[in-house]
């Protein structure tokens, strides 16, 4: 099932794209090594879909190159790229049955045979689904069929364009897991585009953050989340607690006390990044004092806005609901783990 050897490395080099006067991509360079999953995450309008369509061959970039295993395919038309595509709503052909949809890209000889059944089995759908019409499928099933259809030609790379965003929360997670499993088992290189940072972080071996047409950062999910390139990226990837601090000798002094640093930072005034889950709520006498201003109850946890006694800075804290927080309550706060320091003047 898997493509031969180590093939399927996609390289996007210096991609720029403009629609008229509007520049949507600025010099984006990204590599998707063979057999890995990469997620491009960014807010809507950031240019991530343009990048995907460039990889697919539907757009020719104004500048830059698309390379597949070292071969320049920038001007190769979409149908000769050995790249599969699964789009937002699956784009199943409404006038063809599931079986004929899956068979659409297969060589003539395989369309009737057992291959359709194999592909349905691969995406965990029963073989008799081949006779159904696309409008008889649920959203999740439609995406599975779209995946089976795309995998039928054994593409070296599969492009996923927000394939889960039309599904509701529970189904989205299950479908994502199923797709992940299939792609791993076939060893297909995957490039996922999404605006959902949680989806990007949980799906991919490598995450690329794109904002306003520029690649901000790329790397392993935990690196991206724990060591964001700048505060804007940090805020985009999840909730951020930002405090002012003074750095000396690898430690920072701030309203939450002395915290170790995760990154190298020059001595002096900095902005410190912490994640809400790094701040532990304790008894008042065991930590830095804070006053709960507001608390939002979410069932499994509570998010609270806390004003720190010392600096009067307001931060957001997330607390599991073993001991609920009430506005007006005074609590203690303690930092676990390390902070990231950013030079002032950024965001």
């Amino acid at each position: 099932m898997s493509p031969a050897g180590d093939s399927g490395t996609l390289q996007l080099t210096g991609i720029s794209h403009r629609y008229g006067a509007h520049q949507v991509l600025h010099n984006v360079t990204l590599e998707c090594p063979a057999g890995t999953a990469t997620a491009i995450v960014g807010p809507s309008g950031s240019g991530k879909t343009t990048l995907l369509r460039t990889a697919a061959g539907f757009l020719t970039p104004s500048q830059g190159q698309v390379m597949l295993d070292g071969t320049d395919i920038t001007s190769r038309p979409a149908h000769r790229r050995s790249i599969g595509l699964v789009s937002q709503d699956g784009a199943l052909f409404p006038h063809l049955s599931v079986g004929r949809n899956i068979g659409f890209g297969l060589p003539r000889g395989q369309r009737g045979g057992s291959r359709i059944g194999e592909l349905l089995d691969l995406v965990s759908l029963p073989a008799d689904y081949a006779d159904r019409r696309p409008d008889q499928l649920s959203g999740g099933q439609r995406q599975r069929v779209a995946l089976a259809r795309a995998l039928g030609r054994r593409p070296q790379i599969i492009l996923l364009d927000e394939p889960f965003s039309a599904l509701d929360a529970g189904l989205r997670e299950r479908t994502r897991k199923a797709v992940q499993k299939v792609l791993r088992s076939t060893g297909t290189t995957a490039l996922l585009v999404t605006h959902d940072q949680d989806e990007a972080l949980s799906f991919a071996d490598s995450v690329a953050v794109i904002q306003e047409g520029t690649l901000r950062q790329a790397g392993a999910p935990e690196n991206i989340y724990n060591l964001p390139a700048d505060l804007a990226t940090a805020r985009f990837l999840g909730e951020a607690v930002v405090l002012e601090g003074q750095v000396s000798a690898g430690w920072a002094e701030c309203a939450l006390g002395r915290v170790p640093l995760r990154n190298e930072s020059p001595t002096g005034f900095v902005h410190l990044l912490l994640r809400p889950e790094q701040i532990e709520v304790t008894e008042p006498e065991q930590g830095i004092l804070g006053l709960v201003l507001d608390a939002d109850y979410f069932g499994h946890d509570t998010t609270a806005v806390v004003r720190l006694h010392g600096s009067q800075e307001e931060i957001r804290v997330r607390q599991l609901n073993t001991q609920p927080l009430e506005p007006g309550e005074t609590i203690g706060l303690r930092v676990t783990g390390a902070a990231v320091a950013y030079p002032p003047g950024g965001h």
């Binding site: 149908h79 000769r80 659409f104 030609r153």
Partner: peptide
């Protein structure tokens, strides 16, 4: 007839003309 379907056909290895004939035209 959604243009995404033509693109899906092209991504499945069909030249544009075939995509028009087999997807757009029937729709």
């Amino acid at each position: 007839a959604p243009p995404e379907l033509e693109e899906a056909a092209r991504a499945l290895g069909k030249p544009t003309l075939i995509a028009y004939l087999r997807i757009t035209l029937p729709l």
